[in-house]
Simulated scan of single mutants.
Amino acid sequence: MSVLSKIVETVRHRVRKQREKVPVEEMKIEPVERKSLTEKIETNPNTSIIGELKRTSPSSGVIREDFQLPELARSIAEGGAVGISVLTEPVYFDGKIEYLREVSNSVEIPVLRKDFIVEKYQLYQTAASHADSVLLIAEILDEELPEFVALTKELDMEPLVEVRNKEQAELAEDAEAELIGINNRDLKSMEIDLSRTERIINSIPEGLVTVSESGIENRHDVERVTQAGADAVLVGIAIMESTDVKRKVLSLTGDPHG
């Protein structure tokens, strides 16, 4: 069984328990003013960086011991990031759903929930946690993707649909996704290949906003994927490993002060 299959199985089991405890009908989804990640990317004069908050990962182990969420979120925002991705998966990434509201209360930029969304219940959960956007993985959802994209929009959030090949990119387009993430990491082998962005991006129609994800370590990597056509870059480990998070984000955006 691949790492992805194990994670999905674990998530399904957890979501079933959560749904039994708090059904959708009992969930309070407050009307909040959501921020558009797409708009931030399209209007940003510098390179658009989405900084990711994650403590651990299956491929890297513990990434950051000192995980002070509000402080890290503010440093990422002050570094010029257009958004913040928050890992909420608890077993493999040591995340918490509560992190979303904590980060939303700390910064003015859009907050993206990054998790393994397998049930629609999680979308209601995400909306109730004040997130602005949510990651949907085409490889997991497959033919269910259009329903998940539609419900995400119905709940006033933006779906970032993650793909890793041309077939999944077509699936995302057919699902009417407007924000497409290209994952440079193979979710089954966990290997990283930045050329994945270069190979897939030409199959994504003009007008859609593209984000290159995973394996970006420095400004050189950022320039490589943006020159290929990526509109934004999502960076996690390189930021989390930095002793000066704000300066690291500034350097990735190409800001001369970084």
Rank of each mutant, 00 (worst) to 15 (best):
E20I: 05
A131N: 00
G51V: 06
I192C: 00
R196G: 02
E89D: 13
K17D: 06
S75M: 14
T10P: 00
S2P: 14
V233E: 09
T38D: 09
D174N: 15
E98W: 06
K114C: 07
I180N: 10
K17H: 09
A81T: 09
N202L: 10
G215C: 02
V11P: 01
P110Y: 07
E191G: 04
K96T: 12
E119G: 03
I41F: 07
L155W: 03
I50M: 12
L208W: 00
E25P: 05
H220K: 14
D231Q: 07
L87I: 12
P23F: 08
L208K: 12
K153R: 14
E158L: 02
T243R: 11
P23Q: 07
I200H: 02
E173I: 15
K114F: 09
V225M: 06
E89Y: 09
D231T: 06
S59E: 11
D174R: 15
K153I: 03
D186Q: 02
E30Y: 04
I109E: 10
S106T: 09
E173R: 15
L234T: 08
L72F: 03
R219A: 13
E158K: 01
I50R: 08
P205M: 07
P45A: 03
E223C: 10
V32I: 12
I239N: 00
L155H: 01
Q227I: 04
S195F: 07
T56S: 15
V161K: 04
S36C: 10
V161R: 05
E223N: 15
S189C: 09
S104E: 14
V235A: 04
I7V: 11
Q227T: 13
E144N: 04
Y121L: 00
I76T: 08
L179N: 01
R12M: 08
I76L: 11
Q125V: 00
V24P: 06
S57I: 11
V111T: 11
E147K: 10
T43N: 15
A81N: 06
V24S: 04
S57A: 15
R164Y: 13
S57C: 13
L72N: 02
K40E: 15
N218L: 08
I200N: 04
L250T: 02
L250S: 06
A127E: 00
E162H: 07
N46K: 15
A238I: 08
T210R: 14
F93L: 14
T88V: 10
D115C: 10
R34V: 13
G236T: 03
N44W: 10
D156K: 11
L151F: 02
I182M: 04
E144V: 01
L135D: 06
K188E: 15
M1K: 13
R113I: 01
K188Y: 13
F116E: 07
P146S: 03
V249E: 01
M240V: 00
I76V: 12
L155E: 00
I7M: 03
E39F: 12
P90E: 06
N105G: 10
D142G: 04
E30A: 05
R34G: 12
L87Q: 11
G258V: 15
L187G: 08
I63C: 14
A230G: 08
L171I: 05
V15Y: 01
E119P: 03
A127K: 01
R113G: 07
V107G: 06
S212P: 08
R219C: 08
S129M: 11
K166M: 05
I84M: 13
V245H: 00
G181F: 05
I29K: 02
V222F: 04
G80T: 07
S242I: 02
V161I: 07
R19L: 11
Y92A: 13
V161F: 06
V107W: 13
T253A: 11
